[in-house]
Design a protein around this nucleic acid. Structure first.
Lengths: 357, 357
DNA sequence: CTGAAAGCGCTAACAC
DNA sequence: GTGTTAGCGCTTTCAG
């Protein structure tokens, strides 16, 4: 029967083992300068008492907590959750703990208390995984920000003197649109996410510029705006059918809204991909099982998270200068296009072969 | 220009304000016994230096960290993410921080280090939000568990002397099956999640018992097993079509696998709900936009999380006895049935009216 | 009302 | 190899 009902301290271990706390400290930190016998004796006492060093006391004296703060938003959506999952895995591997704060989407008026809470607990760095919406980055580079710890931002517009790790949403928009052009579609509409989101604007920009680049004129009638949810996809696609009747395909800002497009099309008897090509964004796991399976732009949030954590820890452990010399400041990763039936008008491969890929 | 480049301590504040650290402490803790003038002077210095009390030092001396440990698994899936989101919101409201650990699904052989990491940081309690799979609860109530802090478990079988907050999955299975019976379906198949999962077995049990209760004999041919993913739903439904040809409806263990059912049925020209009724589980946001919209059992993970956190904090602050008198030990919440087209054979309401609900 | 002393649990620096 | 001293940043006695 071990007794852990009350936490054992280094002092107790020391007294039971008949050594000084210093020696116990040396043992738990695996220092070489302890005699084998002493070490063994101390280890036995540690095991017997169920002693566990206090990370708190250690953090205090070492001025290093081996803990990262994570600020995230929209955890009920799959994208942010995957990002967070990537962060937990990478942090665990590096031996760091994670202090989590979730923000409601919005203008982030009061980030002060968030920082307070994190800094009060002596986090060694902060990963800011809240999407850039509206003016919610106005506080960056303000006097608020002369912190003594590094911050890595995910999913925001790269800037000078800021470390950003993100997916290239603009390129994603280009890839989706190019693919539709290659498939022979010419009248390509777009349903964007909320235009207050940087990511939405990037994806839209990729779409617009690719069309322009192909000599196709783009006007406002060809684009509508949703709010990412499937529910919010219904009206935009109906509106597009009305105001842009010659539309033969549509690039949708995310897979959820694309799902709504498939449903509305089905109700109207519009065949996909014959009458309407559809490309989504995100590659949620379900999109391979939509009717028909959805072509979509995949972003590897795991990789984003992994790189963010690794960069963060590198800065913490080597200091900023260690980074400067080797890595570029910000990292913008290319997405990949996953082609499925919803956009395949040129029938190289038909039917079931592509399902569930 | 505030200078925060280096963290201000209570000592510095004290010396600048010309008082003792004690007085500063009184001010930041909003104690009444400080003269208004002194208080004001100290507050000004605090603001000027950008002083922030160290939660670490506080935790150390108070033996309370106002931090909860959260152990979770499967963050890349939407269910756990919603749960976590509920936890973050409830914890924030209560003024608690959250230390997050993610576990890979599986047998949880080595939970020791997880506890070590959490306890080392002096969490005041632990929320164990990992599903019960196989024997992964064997460590509960072992000597490992005589901790001095409370643990609340989510999603596991209630036991004596353990605090569990969970959805009644068994009841969910009953509701789904009863609904199909009411709609006139009689040959109701089932695709379960992995049977090593407690939740899967509960849902399956509800299905089986409801059929038996209705005087319908159930045999092994009527049930197959998936692994929750859409991809894993394809084979089970195909197998059911073969080995249970008279099947007129199916209760599927989650919405993702139900999506696969819809796809396979569509390929086979099987009409839903006329030829095959389908009910899922979870009510993921997309399920309202499936073709056809999916009837499903909804579980309110936010509520589960909220109750778990509130119970936890109540125990921390009042002690176990404070709980005993008022609340029942464990809480098992009923799910709700969301009826959509995929199971509506009795056409009270047709077509578009139900879409997107 | 305010301050001095002690100590939360640990480790760095120095002695022996 | 090992112990002593000091102190991380804060709060809790207890004097005054």
């Amino acid at each position: 029967m071990r007794q852990r009902s009350t936490r054992a301290t280094i002092k107790q271990v020391a007294s039971v083992a008949g050594v000084s706390t210093q020696t116990v400290s040396r043992v738990i930190n695996e220092r070489p300068d302890v005699s084998p016998e002493t070490r063994k004796r101390v280890q036995e006492v540690i095991a017997r008492l169920g002693y566990r060093p206090s990370a708190l006391a250690r953090s205090l004296i070492r001025q290093r907590s081996y803990t990262l703060g994570v600020v995230i938003a929209g955890l009920k959506h799959i994208g942010p959750s995957r990002t967070l999952s990537g962060i937990t895995i990478a942090a665990e591997e590096a031996g760091y703990g994670l202090l989590l704060k979730e923000l409601p989407y919005g203008e982030e008026k009061n980030i002060e208390p968030i920082f307070q809470a994190l800094l009060a607990r002596h986090v060694d760095g902060i990963i800011w995984a809240v999407p850039q919406i509206g003016e919610n980055r106005s506080w960056v580079q303000q006097d608020l920000m002369d912190l003594d710890i590094p911050i890595v931002y995910l999913t925001m517009e790269p800037r000078e003197n800021i470390l950003v790790v993100s997916i290239n949403n603009y390129m994603g928009g280009q890839m989706a649109t190019s693919h539709l052009l290659e498939q022979g579609y010419r009248n390509i509409g777009h349903i964007s996410g909320p235009l207050s989101w940087w990511e939405s604007r990037q994806r839209m920009g990729g779409w617009k510029d690719t069309l322009s680049g192909a000599g196709i004129v783009v006007n406002d009638q060809q684009c509508t705006e949703g709010n990412w949810s499937s529910a919010s996809g219904v009206e935009p696609i109906q509106k597009l059918f009305e105001q842009y009747p010659q539309m033969d395909s549509v690039f949708v800002g995310n897979d959820q809204m694309a799902l709504a497009v498939l449903q509305v099309a089905s109700q109207k008897g519009i065949r996909i991909p014959e009458d309407l090509g559809v490309v989504g964004f995100d590659n949620i796991p379900e999109s391979a099982y939509f009717l028909p399976p959805l072509t979509t732009v995949q972003q590897d949030q795991y990789l984003v998270a992994k790189i963010a954590v690794e960069k963060m820890i590198k800065i913490i452990e080597l200091g900023w200068q260690g980074l400067d010399s080797v890595d570029p400041q910000s990292v913008i990763l290319p997405p990949t296009l996953v082609v499925r039936q919803s956009s395949l008008r040129i029938n190289e491969k038909e039917g079931g072969a592509l399902i569930g890929t």
